[in-house]
Computed example of a mutant assay.
Amino acid sequence: MTLAPAHSHGQAVWSDTQLLYALEEVVETELNRHLKVAKEWMPHEYVPWSDGRNFDGVMGGEAWAPDQSKVSDVGRIALVVNLLTEDNLPSYHHEIATLFGRDGAWGTWVHRWTAEEGRHGIVMRDYLLTSRAVDPVQLERFRMAHMSEGFESDNQHSMLHTVAYVAFQELATRISHRNTGHHSGDPVCDRMLARIATDENLHMIFYRNLLEKAFELAPDQTMCAVRDVVVNFRMPGHGMPGFERAAAQIAIGGIYNLRIHHDDVLQPVLRFLKVLKIGGLGPEGLKAQEELGLYMGGLDDQATKFDERREALLARRRARAERS
């Protein structure tokens, strides 16, 4: 097997195996950087254990009721979506371990990433149940339904598509957690989600820096992968029960919507990588770059229209509240 890429239109064409090998040194560098800056933290320190009490059922405690929650309505919806997304970690681990492998620096990163992501699900579930923020029966039924479906990437199972997707998705998750904390109405929840968001940001930096090196090695292929991921982007929780309705409420609530997706997720990564300014591309790369630019312009227009509709809806709600 050769590890030298083939060529097309004067550009190297890399297989997944060749790219994994070529990027191994970058992965090791980024892994070491990550381990130096990542701070150890304990999930149990972020949970208000003294607020906890037995639920109904075998323990004979008190059934959950909405008025027991300190969290806002939109905060409850977002917390369930965020936790169910974290719950599907076994499927995500399978996806990236299958693509990246379990050996060398790649394998070390996959396992480290999985361990850190697992901590997020632990602390969120402990917080939600102890503080009675959400309905525990509904949460468990949703978890069973969502995990039974599993998760399969939309991204054609190419290594470059996966790296591009997680670079954007980790930032999207960070923004979603952070905004959920801000809108939750509970300072304890806000502090916990801020801690999780810090981890997600470090994960984004790892994948973003990897994507930057991929652009140097295989600019056309990487540009096409970024184009495909951005144009077809969906959050990993899209298969959970009631996701469309929950996503609409989260969007109106200002936690995650088109404007946030464009301004706070896509633009920062594209700008950092100078994706729309990269030169030296072949025909396929140039086509992908042009399509990406057109898509971003169209998304900005859609976000503006969404902002106008959202503001009109919120104004009607305020008027109704004032009349009642």
Rank of each mutant, 00 (worst) to 15 (best):
H182K: 15
V80E: 14
L276V: 06
Q267Y: 12
T29A: 10
G181V: 00
T17N: 03
E30R: 14
H34M: 14
Y46S: 08
R141M: 10
T98S: 15
V226C: 02
E25K: 09
E28A: 14
M147W: 06
L217W: 05
A319G: 04
A214G: 06
A194S: 15
H94I: 03
L129V: 03
W113Q: 03
S324A: 10
K70H: 11
H111T: 14
L270E: 02
E284I: 12
E152N: 08
A6H: 13
F272S: 14
E30Y: 08
E117C: 02
E322V: 09
E170H: 02
W113I: 00
M192H: 07
A225T: 07
D73C: 02
A22T: 07
K70R: 15
R208K: 13
P5N: 12
I250C: 05
S148A: 15
Y127H: 01
S184W: 03
V26E: 09
T222Y: 05
V27C: 06
G101Y: 10
H262R: 11
L35N: 13
H203N: 04
L19I: 07
I205A: 02
R259Y: 00
L3N: 15
H262A: 13
M223N: 02
E308Y: 08
V13T: 15
M296Y: 11
H9Y: 08
A65E: 14
T114H: 15
F243S: 01
F206V: 05
A63C: 09
R119A: 10
